Amino acid sequence: MLFTLITGASSGIGLELAKQFAQNGKSLILVARSEKALQDLAQELTHQYQIKVHVIPADLSRPEECQRLFELCRQQNLHVENLVNNAGVGDNAAFVETEWTRQEQMIRLNMESLTRLTHLFLPEMVQRKSGGILNVASTAAFQPGPYMAVYYATKAYVLSFSEAINAELKGSGVHATALCPGPTHSAFQATAKMDKSKLFKMLNVPSSKDVAEFAYQSFQKKKAVAVHGVMNKIMSLSVGVTPRFLLLKIVSFLNK
């Protein structure tokens, strides 16, 4: 039986993506640190959509957890058709003022675990000649981000990595999509302290549900890069023609 595995599925965009896949008949493997939240979501989706839902609590900022997750899926004969790498963290502060443990967690979760899980689950998709990978990047991926330096850098990696493997997978029956949402109403924004930034206050911020609906449709269309929102698309395109010094000033102002 084939499943869609979603990391960071306990809240925000991850939770709403689980609902999108569920209402389209996809059985799920839900992964996050909060077992209670996952169990509640699994019960809701099973009852509403009559699908199979497996819950696997895991802290993917710990490198060994990716391998454990893969082994558990293999032991339980859970074959992953779609992998949604949504788990991630952020931090809104000057780099010199941040705690290293937070930055290390960000690097491991936003980049290392995403890459490791892709490396573990992708071979079976290619062998089966079907499936896809949805990596949640950000509009932060298109430029450097003062006061969120490491976060912006990790999302640039996600975008670059996703586009590269999507090109490699051409003709294989498998694809990769990089989702690039802008600021979104979710628990992530508050945890990263982004909800206090000028960027968050100045924009018309969409809901996690809006972003998830767009993400699912883009994934089904096998888009390589999916930027949510008209203004975000315009801003991402303008990066290439905006002088670098001016870009840094603008992002500094919005994030500070």
Rank of each mutant, 00 (worst) to 15 (best):
V225E: 07
L2Y: 12
V225S: 11
Y49A: 01
G145N: 00
S61G: 01
A22Y: 11
A153L: 03
I107P: 08
R68S: 08
P206E: 06
V251W: 08
I165S: 03
E65G: 07
V158Y: 15
E99G: 11
Q189D: 11
V241K: 02
E65P: 03
M194I: 13
H79F: 07
W100K: 01
K196G: 11
R128N: 12
T4W: 03
I6H: 05
D195P: 07
A140E: 04
V239A: 04
K256G: 12
T191N: 06
E112T: 07
L15M: 11
F214H: 07
L120H: 12
L2C: 12
A215R: 00
L17R: 04
Q20A: 05
S10G: 04
N255C: 06
D59M: 01
A93H: 10
P181V: 01
K155N: 09
G240E: 09
N232F: 00
N77Q: 06
I29F: 06
L169R: 00
F219H: 02
G14W: 10
I133T: 12
V150L: 14
K256C: 04
M125D: 02
K193H: 09
K222R: 14
V136F: 02
G88E: 01
S138F: 00
R74Y: 08
A37K: 15
F121Y: 07
V53K: 03
A192W: 01
A32G: 11
A32C: 10
L83W: 00
G173W: 09
L83A: 00
K26Q: 13
L203K: 11
V251G: 05
G182C: 11
T177K: 05
L114Y: 02
L120P: 05
I107S: 10
Y152P: 04
E97A: 09
C66D: 14
A140V: 10
N92A: 11
F188S: 07
A137F: 04
S162R: 07
V225T: 15
K196F: 08
G171R: 12
A226S: 15
A22C: 08
S186I: 11
L38T: 13
S218T: 01
S160T: 08
E112V: 15
I56D: 01
V227R: 14
F121R: 03
V31T: 05
L237I: 04
Q189Y: 05
V150W: 00
L134R: 06
R244M: 14
L246Y: 07
N85M: 10
F161D: 12
L28V: 06
A94L: 11
E112Y: 13
S160K: 00
S238D: 08
M194D: 06
T139A: 07
P123Y: 05
S113P: 04
T101L: 13
R116Q: 14
V251M: 11
C180P: 02
S207H: 13
A156D: 09
V174Q: 02
V96S: 15
N24T: 04
E99Q: 13
T46C: 12
S11A: 15
R62S: 06
N110D: 12
L159W: 04
T177L: 14
E71H: 06
